[in-house]
């Protein structure tokens, strides 16, 4: 088992854990954290694909992709946090309260 495969599998596991919490947590802040977990897992997976050729040179493209991805993830998180603040101001709650919806 090559090192890069271990990284790739770790990435998948992290993303999977993140996904589980992303779906199951009720608190929106926790959801956001979980979302960042998914992102990190995927980035790890992507970076590991740079060493696809065992003896060849390292592929630079995945690094560029991950860097771009991180920028996107940061801005999305920032927007999420700003929205959560507004949501908390409006409702005083950090969950989607379905019963009070209609």
């Amino acid at each position: 088992m090559s090192t890069s495969l271990i990284y790739a599998l770790t990435g998948i596991v992290i993303a999977g854990l993140g996904l589980f919490h992303y779906l199951s947590q009720r608190n929106i802040l926790r959801k956001i954290l979980a979302g960042n977990f998914i992102g990190t897992g995927i980035f790890l997976f992507l970076v590991s694909s740079a060493a696809r050729q065992v003896d060849g040179p390292i592929d630079p493209v995945p690094h560029a992709l991950v860097l771009t991805g991180i920028v996107v993830a940061v801005s999305a998180t920032a927007l999420l946090l700003a929205l959560v603040c507004r949501y908390h101001d409006e409702t005083g709650s950090l969950t989607f309260d379905e019963e009070n919806d209609e």
Binding site: I28, K31, G35, A76, L79, L80, L83, V84, R86, Y87, E90, T91, F96
Partner: peptide, 9 residues
């Protein structure tokens, strides 16, 4: 706000 938060998630 609620709709946009949900949409973003």
């Amino acid at each position: 706000i609620k709709a946009s938060l949900r949409y973003l998630l």
